[in-house]
Amino acid sequence: MNRVSAFGRVVREARLAKGWSQEELAERASLHRNFVSLVERGQSKIALDSLFFLADALETTASELLRATESVVQNNKGNSP
């Protein structure tokens, strides 16, 4: 799994843990719902300001989102051909 997809997975899991829709997260982060969808599907790279908006909305830190992303990538290295 690449880093962009792993980040999307982390964001999606954090959003679902809060019981929020993509639209609710987007609203809380002042981002467009389509952008949140693209990020969660690993189809959009994220700008630094958007990373902080998402982290704030999810009540976490940007560093924690990135740390979780690194963990997902590391855990999936053994699963890659």
Rank of each mutant, 00 (worst) to 15 (best):
W20Y: 09
L48Q: 09
A29H: 02
K77N: 05
A26D: 04
V11I: 15
R41G: 02
L51Q: 06
N79S: 11
Q22M: 14
T69G: 04
D56G: 11
T60F: 08
E13N: 14
R15E: 01
R9P: 07
V73L: 02
E64K: 10
F35T: 12
S30A: 14
V72A: 08
R12T: 04
G42V: 00
A14H: 07
P81V: 06
Q43L: 15
L25E: 00
A55Q: 11
E59T: 13
E27I: 09
T69D: 08
Q22P: 09
W20M: 05
F53D: 14
N75V: 10
G78V: 06
A47F: 08
V10D: 03
S63Q: 10
L65K: 01
P81D: 07
L25D: 00
Q74E: 11
N2R: 12
N34I: 14
A55K: 12
V72L: 08
N79W: 02
R67S: 04
R9K: 13
E13D: 10
V72G: 05
R3N: 06
R9G: 13
T69K: 10
L16F: 01
L25R: 03
E40G: 02
F53A: 15
I46A: 08
R3H: 09
V11D: 00
Q74P: 02
G42H: 05
F35V: 05
L31Q: 02
S30I: 06
D56A: 15
R28L: 08
L48R: 11
